[in-house]
Design a protein around this nucleic acid. Structure first.
Lengths: 245, 245
DNA sequence: CGGTTCCTTGATAACGATCAAAGGCCGTGG
DNA sequence: CCACGGCCTTTGATCGTTATCAAGGAACCG
C-alpha cells in the first residue's frame, strides 16, 4: 500500500511502511533486512535551505527522501552552483557518489521542508554483497539518472532558455499543478526563480525575461512563485515543436 | 598482465587475456565465467564511422571495446547530434541503456577503426544475478559516468567555447599526445572538428574560430586534425584559471 | 576525376550575460 | 508592532559570445 503523497512531517519515521522502502531499490530487500536498516538509520527533519550533505565531504552513507523536495547541486570552482536534478519523496540520493568514490561529488539541500533518512554506508555495502537484486535496482536507478543527465545536457545545447523554462514548468506541472475551475492550471513552484535559473544554467534576469515572454504570449501568468498556465496547449506546443521536429 | 595499448586489429579475439576482461567490471568474473562469455560473444571489426548500435533500437546486450575509439551520441528530435562521451579500449558501453530499459537511449559509432565485442543480454543478466561483485563493478562504472556527465554539463554552463575546447584538447593530450624534440606536444585528434563541436555543443564555425583564437595567442598551431601544443603551460592556465578560481 | 564532407572566413543577427538600480517580500530583532 | 536588512525579483541599457547564413577551398573516397 502506497503512503499518500501528502503527509504530516514526523520527526521519527519507521522504514516499515515508509514510501521509500516501497519504491525502487529498497523493495528488493526482505522484511528482516528492512528492519535492520530501520534500526541503523537516522532520520531528521530539514527546513527549506538546510543542507543534507555538502560537496567534497566524505561519504558516510546514502539518504532516502521521506518527504519534501531536494536539490542536488554541483559547485563550480568560481562558486557558481548548478542544480543537476531535483529529487522527491521515495527516492534515494548519494548512492552514486557512495559507489563512485569516497567523497560526495555533488551537494544536496532541501528546497521544501521534509524528512530525510540517513543509512550508514557499511549496511548498504553489506546488503549489496549478498543481494544482487538490490545491486540491480541501484543499477537501474543509476541508468535512469544517467539518461536524464544526458537528456538534460542535450536540451541545454539546443534549447533556448525560454524553451527550457517551458520544459521545467511542464515537469513540475505534472507533480505540483492543480486544475482550477476556470480551466487554467495553478502551479506553485517548489523553488525560487533563481534556483530555476541554476537548473537551466542561465542567469536569474534571463529567467525573469523568459517568463515575461511566455506571459506576453498569453501562455501563462506568474505571481511570485505561483504560475497560472492559461494555455496548456500552447505551452506543450512550445516544447513539442522542437521535440517532435 | 595488461595487454599493451597498441595492438594489431584482429578479426577474432578471445576474452581470455583481452584487455577489456582485465579491466573494470569483468575482472569480477571467474575464469570459467569468462570462458562462457568467450563462447557466447561475437566480435567484429568496425571502420571509422561504422555504427555499433543506433538510438531507439532494442537492446540486445552490451558491448566491449577491444580496440579503437567509440563515440556515444544522442540525437535531438530535429536531427542534431550531441556526443555525450567517448570511450576507448577496455571499456564497456550500452550497459546503462541495457539496465535502464529495453531500448538504447544513445547511439554508438566508431571514431577510429577497431574491434568491438557484443555480449548477449541474457548472459549478462545471468551472471549479474549470481555475482554481486559484477553488479557492484557496473555500479561503480555507472557512478563514474554519471559524475562525468554532471561535470560536463557544468562546464557547458559556465565555460566559453574556447575554454571547453582547451579542456577537450587537454583530455585527448593525455591519451593521444606525443612529446616532440622541440618541446612541443603533437596531438592527432581522434575525430573531426565537427565532431568536437558536437561534444561541446557548439557549431563547427565556432570551434574553428576558437582554434584560431588559441592559435593567435601562440598556445598552439593546428594543421588539419593535427595540433602542436606550443605552450602547454598557457593551455593549462587557460583551464585552471577557471577551475581553481 | 567528380562528388561529398569538412574546414575556413566573412558579415550579420539573435541570444544571453553583465551591470546597475529599485521595489517587494520575509524573517529578525528592537 | 514596526523597522531593518537581506535576498529575490524585475526592468533597463549595453556588451560579448555564439549562431546563422553564405560561399570558397581543401581533403578524401569511390
Amino acid at each position: 500500500m502506497a503512503t499518500p503523497k501528502t503527509r504530516t512531517p514526523r520527526q521519527q519515521v519507521s522504514c516499515i511502511g515508509c514510501s521509500t522502502c516501497d519504491t525502487a531499490e529498497w523493495s528488493a530487500l526482505s522484511r528482516s533486512e528492512i528492519e535492520q536498516i530501520n534500526a541503523a538509520k537516522s532520520s531528521r527533519h530539514y527546513r527549506s535551505g538546510d543542507v543534507i550533505y555538502e560537496q567534497d565531504e566524505p561519504c558516510t552513507g546514502i539518504y532516502c527522501i521521506e518527504s519534501g523536495m531536494v536539490a542536488v547541486r554541483q559547485l563550480s570552482a568560481d562558486g557558481t552552483a548548478k542544480i543537476m536534478r531535483t529529487v522527491e519523496f521515495g527516492e534515494t540520493i548519494g548512492y552514486a557518489d557512495f559507489f563512485g568514490g569516497g567523497k560526495y561529488r555533488t551537494g544536496a539541500y532541501c528546497l521544501e521542508p521534509g524528512i530525510v533518512c540517513h543509512i550508514p554506508g557499511d549496511l548498504v555495502r553489506k546488503f549489496l554483497a549478498n543481494s544482487p537484486d538490490l545491486g540491480l535496482a541501484f543499477l537501474t536507478h543509476g541508468a535512469q539518472a544517467l539518461h536524464e543527465a544526458d537528456a538534460s545536457s542535450l536540451r541545454q545545447s539546443v534549447y533556448t532558455v525560454r524553451l527550457q523554462l517551458a520544459h521545467v514548468i511542464l515537469r513540475f506541472k505534472d507533480r505540483h499543478g492543480t486544475a482550477q475551475d476556470d480551466g487554467t492550471i495553478l502551479l506553485q513552484m517548489p523553488m525560487t526563480w533563481t534556483e530555476v535559473s541554476q537548473m537551466i544554467g542561465a542567469r536569474p534576469e534571463t529567467i525573469s525575461r523568459a517568463l515575461q515572454s511566455l506571459s506576453h504570449d498569453n501562455i501563462l501568468r506568474s505571481e511570485g512563485r505561483r504560475i497560472f498556465i492559461d494555455d496548456l496547449d500552447l505551452l506543450l506546443d512550445e516544447v513539442e515543436r522542437v521535440e517532435a521536429g
